[in-house]
Each structure stands twice: as C-alpha cells, then as structure tokens.
Amino acid sequence: MPRRRLIAVAALTLTATLGLSACGGDDEPTTTPASPQGSAPTQSGEQSPDPGSGSEVEQSGTRIELTRTGDVFDPSGARVKVKRGEAVTLVIVSDTAGSLHVHSTPEQDVEYRQGTSTHEVVIDRPGVVEVESHDPDLVVLQLEVR
C-alpha cells in the first residue's frame, strides 16, 4: 500500500506543477495571435483621425494596411482580430494590380490597382478567414473574426 500512496502523492504534485506551469507557459502566447505589433497592419479603431467625414459605423471597424512590392507582401500571414459584421478596411499600396481572395463563406474577391486603393470587406460569421494572394500564392492575412 505505501507504493500506492506514493503514487497518489506524486500524482497530486505533478498535477499541481503542470497546472501551474501550463498557466505560466500559456500566458505568453495569448498575445501572439492578437496583432502583429510593429508590422504594417494598424488597428486604428477609435483613433481614426477623421471626425469630419461622416459614417460613424465605419469608425468602429478595423483598418489594415497592406503593401505589395514585387512579389513580396507586408504583412505576410499576420493574424488580425476583427469583429464580425463590421467593415474591415483594407488599404492596399501596391506596385502592380492584382487580386486578393478572402476565404470567407462565400468567398469574396478584392481587386486592387497599382498605387493606393481602399477596400472594404464584411465577414458575418465567426472563424479564422484567410486573405490570400494568388500569383504569388501567399497567405497575406488571417482575420480572426469574433
């Protein structure tokens, strides 16, 4: 029987340790998917410096800046949190015309031109929606829709 008790004690100790270490270890990554700090997409929610020009609905939405230089996208695969049913404004600065596919259900296409263009997409169901470029085949954004 002492062996059995030993194992029970070991079990409890281990449980406590893993419980604690799991909490400690998992704290950090929660921030990872949130938003790519320091890289291009800016979540300019409330600080949108544009009080004069009309629509208040769009002000609460997310604004994401994308740059395409040749075949290189910035950001490249970043995760951005957005609210469902709200307009996501994509500001695309590109040196060539092209298109992005928003893999929501149903899919949405964003055709952009050379130079700077602004586009809006609305996603009305929770989930992770990839925004992809085809040619080159790259995931540009992952929109975490809640």
């Binding site: 998992d26 989930g127 992770v128 929606v129 990839e130």
Partner: peptide, 20 residues
C-alpha cells in the same frame, strides 16, 4: 480553381482557459 484547401473560414482558436 483556387490553390486552397476546402472550406472557407476555419475555426477560431479555443480559449486559453479551456485549453488549460
């Protein structure tokens, strides 16, 4: 034809407290 897997949106990540 898109070089992309099946299905549109993918599932949201599970909340951290549930995972723990």
């Amino acid at each position: 034809v898109l070089a992309h897997g099946l299905g549109g949106a993918k599932d949201l990540p599970i909340p951290v407290d549930m995972a723990v």
